[in-house]
Design a protein around this nucleic acid. Structure first.
Lengths: 196, 196
DNA sequence: ACAGACATGTAAAGTGTTACATGATTCA
DNA sequence: TGAATCATGTAACACTTTACATGTCTGT
């Protein structure tokens, strides 16, 4: 039900069409929960059936009509009740970590390259978050209570990205120290029998 | 296919029954990818059909028979090829973060309590990781190449858990500074929720 | 006697991804 | 003319969770 909750939070902030929601799930709320437009249309339709949201059709000039969804009282009340139930602790789930874990069965150079790529991607995301922080929260001591949640998750995102970068740096450092011995010798063959 | 890869990594390290795999997915490999025994039995059966693993029935005394799975050459080769393809960058996905984000629509005290709970859970996991580190990797300068992957992901796990703890502390600090209107009398509580 | 570990599954429901589908307007 | 944005979906498939199912042996 996490997607329902994410949609409710987003609609509680502001009414939106399915398309708008899909774009928000590419940014803001999507930094912490992703969803495709296909999934959003399906789930938001179901949420209307169960009374959590209502919708009105809006005609537009020069653009297709859209259906704008609003959160209902029932939706707000569900959101409130949800906030009072404890969220089970989440565990890490990372295909990247599985790959690193199994590095002895793979190509160390390719994996090192992948670590580099990951480092760059997380650096990029960190830069975006930092810009967002400077733009929207220049005075951390006096945060508008309505924006406090957004600020706190932004801080979490920043910490997460920085953590990923630091981890990547540690791995690359350890890989260069514990370097795999002399790769280019003709006696070394990979599993398919090809020379390395 | 991430579960297949995780199973291949686990079986490459050591042959195992479905039951053994399920237990490993509660620990070691499971720190980074979770799976239930139902899912494991299903997927490992499929992997046998596609030739990635093979199995032999093993009779045991005083215990039910078991089916022990081994990785095949095809499995090792797939693992190797997989290590050479780049893993798409993973994004954060956290119901907990969604809840914090929407805190203005919920019960601030309940959410603060949830943050405490999360802090404690991550502290516990961190303690387990630290113990693992001291026990299995007392000399980080000279890591057995075969254990390097396991060490690197352990370091990642440690950084992740510490990051979650630090984030929780920052949130609790900010919540007490940007305090929501007049809570109950003894307003000062430490991180474990005890009165000061 | 009962709980817990060992051992392996089926079935149903829910969640998420990928492929396919359509059609209008705006900007280069 | 062609790409991008706006706008909304269906269908098939893959993955994950939850509930149900069975039976043995070991230790308290």
């Amino acid at each position: 039900m996490a997607l329902e909750h994410a949609i409710l939070v987003s609609l509680a902030e502001r009414a939106a069409s399915g398309y708008d929601l899909a774009r928000r799930f590419d940014k803001s709320i999507g930094h912490f929960w992703q969803a495709s437009h296909q999934q959003i249309y399906k789930v938001v339709a179901r949420m209307q059936t169960s009374g959590l949201v209502s919708s009105i059709a809006v005609a537009q000039e020069g653009r297709p009509d859209k259906r704008v969804y609003q959160i209902t009282r029932g939706g707000r009340s569900l959101l409130y009740e949800w906030s009072r139930t404890s969220t089970p602790t989440e565990r890490l789930r990372s295909e990247f970590a599985v790959k690193v874990r199994g590095m002895q069965f793979g190509d160390p150079e390719a994996i090192a390259a992948d670590i580099h790529t990951h480092r760059d991607a997380h650096q990029q995301q960190l830069d975006l978050y930092r810009a967002d922080e400077i733009k929207n929260f220049p005075h951390p001591d006096t945060i508008d209570p309505k924006a406090l949640g957004a600020y706190l998750v932004l801080r979490g995102g920043i910490r997460y990205e920085q953590g990923q970068i630091d981890w990547a740096d540690e791995m690359l450092e350890l890989l260069s120290v514990n370097a795999v011995p002399t790769p280019r010798s003709p006696t070394h063959r990979d599993r398919t029998g090809q020379l390395l």
